[in-house]
Nucleic acid binder design. Structure first.
Lengths: 336, 336
DNA sequence: GTGAAAGCGCTAACAC
DNA sequence: GTGTTAGCGCTTTCAC
């Protein structure tokens, strides 16, 4: 690898001038041309490591997420990547598997590599941001809060849970169950709250507690919970899945039991990008994951360039995509 | 951020000794303890940037892939990440959207950040690896070859295409179409070849050319191609989708047309992790994407630690998961 | 086993 | 507008 010194020598200028050319600082046209020529000849690429060491900041941002195999997070990642790339940043994708120790390791690396900032979907509310905050690196929270007073962008989870449930109620379903994620994850709790609020208000006669299942936010969690619900003495006639993966698991089990939606009503909070279902069979509350990534990345970039206003939280709304064309009378055969 | 100088001062030793402690070089027990103490007090984290600059190598590997939203590649990424992490490496995920310029940029960054190596699913066979090879960084190809004589791990694509097609033939289908990816992508071409070889051998009376569609390796590509096939004067009675996303798109369209498999036979090369279909409706040739990632990462790690034997290529086989339990007579109602 | 000192490649004062 | 030079934080000879 050629260095700035070799380029300088070949171009007949000082190393500083070479640096200036590559950093857009004013340099006479002739020298600038000479430098570019020499650089091309030597296949010179600036050494980012040295640059980072000197400037104490790199053009890399970290995106720390709990599950890279969840399409929701890859969609988010796309959003982040698109705006980061336009601004000349690359993004390191860090997968924590919801484990605090993995998360902590990645946060240390972010400090230690002088990364410009991090976008974090926290593994839990226990996440320790003291060090990275102390290092002065901006952090923006996505999807979930952190217990710190920092920028964030989240979904309107309660509203999404309500919307999903309401559509099922309007479709004529009564015993509407809810499968959600781990109780300590804020998105899981909030979406379940949305479900509960609609149930107690609109269907007070239904015993809500036995119809609520906490699980993992994964396909197998949806499967297990759905099986358990079907095994109930009085099984539900519909179910709200609190995220995309739980929805997939639940629908898989229903299909295997011959209960393909809408035989048993299903509403899912989160998009189902790779589903092969008839689009009219399931109510989906689409969550703007990509937009969340875009917004978070923009906020982070602002912080990186020195903005130090008060911490902001942006709330994004899901968009309901109902199971049936409006006006059609639904559910009459499925309600008991 | 504390430096080794501050730690050294507090511990009453030289900076060199601090460095040794953190690099597992022999240091007396007392001094070692003093250093660790001081480091803890100062919340010292070694500065990786300085380390990288000095050692001319970082503990980061790049994983360059065409589509981060494809579950096939995220599964691959998981495999890479798991072995990398155990070896103390972090992995930077780089998404190229199959664009050569984005890919080239990431490759330059890999050089410029002194990354230890790269795992690459090339955007096309035009990919230029001259610079990165010249920089002495090992590159392992995954999923697709590169035109360079380097390590690689690929799927048995032709075999997979054959297996998918054969299962459809055995199920009694005759006019079996094939939807594959861009012609210039080796996996797309090879899987289609597998399909073609079975067709010409076993069903020579079928006109194969009008049943083959080149498309993008994405859901919408599968949708468009399936629509076009259904609009044919003599539509197919079955279809082979050459990757997971094409399969999803094709099945979506079939579902919308009331032709849910197995009414029209479907075989997919690649797993369908988020499908909600009955598992017996579609033949799937499962591709070991995670294993591919694991294998590639191990090969890369070997190269990084100085192994310079001849370039190797590992071929991984898919595993057929047939649409129907063996012994059941299929397809009699669907064949013309 | 330990310390002193050079240097990885770059940027940013500072002089001119 | 341009060159000289110090120094970012670390590792690694080289003495001792």
């Amino acid at each position: 690898m050629a260095t700035i010194y070799e380029v300088a020598k070949l171009a007949g200028v000082s190393p500083a001038t070479v640096s200036r050319v590559f950093n857009g600082v004013a340099v006479s046209d002739e020298k600038s041309a000479a430098v570019r020529d020499a650089a091309k000849q030597l296949r010179f690429t600036p050494n980012r490591t040295a640059r980072t060491l000197r400037k104490q900041e790199s053009e890399v941002i970290a995106l720390v997420i709990p599950d890279i195999e969840n399409p929701y997070f890859t969609e988010l990642a796309r959003g982040v990547e698109d705006v980061a790339q336009k601004a000349g940043y690359s993004v390191v994708l860090c997968n924590t598997d919801s484990q605090l120790d993995k998360e902590a390791t990645y946060l240390q690396i972010a400090i230690s590599e002088h990364m410009a900032g991090v976008i974090l979907a926290a593994a839990s509310d226990q996440t320790d941001l003291d060090d990275i905050r102390a290092a002065g690196r901006p952090v923006v929270a996505v999807d979930r809060g952190t217990g710190y007073d920092i920028d964030g962008v989240v979904m309107a989870n309660r509203t999404a849970g309500q919307a999903a449930t309401e559509h099922l109620v309007q479709a004529g379903y009564r015993r509407i169950a809810c499968i959600t994620g781990p109780e300590h994850i804020e998105t899981a709790a909030e979406r379940a709250q949305g479900w509960r609020s609609v149930m107690t208000r609109q269907l007070p006669e239904v015993d809500v507690d036995e119809l609520l299942r906490y699980s993992t936010f994964r396909v197998d969690g949806g499967r297990e919970s759905m099986e358990a619900l079907l095994a109930l003495p009085e099984p539900p006639d519909a179910v709200v899945a609190a995220n995309n993966l739980l929805g997939v698991g639940a629908i898989q089990v229903l299909t295997e039991h011959g209960l393909t939606p809408p035989k048993l009503g299903v509403a899912v909070v989160g998009s189902l990008p790779f589903t092969t279902l008839s689009p009219s069979a399931v109510t989906v509350v689409k969550l703007p994951a990509r937009h969340m990534g875009v917004t978070a990345a923009k906020m982070l970039l602002e912080r990186i360039s020195g903005d130090d206003q008060q911490a902001r939280t942006v709330v994004l709304r899901g968009e309901v995509q109902p199971a049936r064309p409006a006006g059609e009378a639904p559910g009459s055969t499925t309600s008991k």
